[in-house]
Computed example of a mutant assay.
Amino acid sequence: MKIRCDCGGIIVDQTDYLPYKGHLISDQDWFDFLDAIDRAIEKSGPADKDKERAAMSIRRMAAHLTKLIYQCTCCGRLYVSNEEENLETFVKPEPFEGKSILASSLGGNWKRPLIGDWDDSRKGSIKGYLWCMDLKEGEGSFDSWGNLEETYYDTLLDLKEKNNSCGEAKVSL
């Protein structure tokens, strides 16, 4: 999905782990959701199938109770889905400072995914792709397995080092 912001910017929702996308849950639904999680943990059966069924019911409930929210990375405008599957727009009165309010509360300590893909049967010279939020555009396409593998492990080590140097994330209220 692509949303054209009133400022002219484009909000793209075509993958997971987006720092400008969130899931909004009403306070009226929040405690019902927490209670459902408690029930799933306490009352799911001992079999793996029971646990999977309980986990999937929580996922379905989360999808049902949440509204999608997007923030334009150009102007900071918020777009929130409503019951009619339209988007409500909210504008910040002060100038936008470029900080996403929807990014992980862990900030730089968020453990981002690193995904590699290689397929010898692809047409053309590009046979592999590497995706990670820390890679710059153009750094994720590979014509050599060795280059993809090397970049994958270098990026993985950089991410591990970064995470270890940050310590544990602490939340204070």
Rank of each mutant, 00 (worst) to 15 (best):
W131L: 04
S104D: 11
R112I: 12
E137G: 15
D117Q: 12
P95K: 11
C74D: 10
S81L: 02
A103H: 10
E94F: 09
R112K: 15
A62Y: 13
K111A: 15
G140D: 07
T66R: 12
C74W: 02
D117G: 09
R112F: 01
W110H: 15
F90A: 06
E97V: 12
R77M: 01
F90V: 08
I115Y: 05
E139T: 04
P93V: 07
S141D: 09
E84C: 05
K127E: 02
T73R: 07
S144F: 04
L102I: 12
G98K: 03
G140F: 02
S125G: 08
G128I: 04
I126A: 06
L106I: 10
N109H: 15
E85D: 13
K99P: 00
F142T: 05
P113I: 14
G76T: 07
V80G: 00
I115H: 08
D120A: 15
G138W: 08
A103S: 14
I69Y: 01
A63V: 10
G140E: 05
I69V: 14
M133S: 13
L87Q: 05
Y70I: 01
R77N: 03
E88M: 08
E94L: 12
L65D: 07
Q71P: 06
T89M: 08
G140T: 09
L65Y: 11
F96R: 03
G116E: 13
V91A: 03
G76I: 04
M61A: 08
V80A: 00
N82R: 05
F142D: 01
E97M: 06
E84M: 06
L135V: 07
E85K: 09
I126F: 01
P95R: 10
G140W: 02
K111E: 15
I115P: 00
L114F: 05
T66K: 10
G116N: 08
G76D: 00
W110E: 15
P93A: 05
I69R: 04
Y129P: 00
E139R: 01
K123S: 13
E83Q: 10
K127R: 11
K127W: 04
G76N: 02
L135D: 04
K136Y: 03
E94P: 01
K123A: 13
G98M: 03
L130F: 02
D143G: 15
I69E: 02
F90D: 00
F142A: 07
L65G: 11
A63I: 09
F90N: 03
G116R: 11
D134C: 07
G98Q: 02
L68A: 10
I101G: 14
R77T: 11
N109Q: 15
D119P: 10
S104F: 05
W118V: 13
K123D: 13
D119Q: 12
F90M: 08
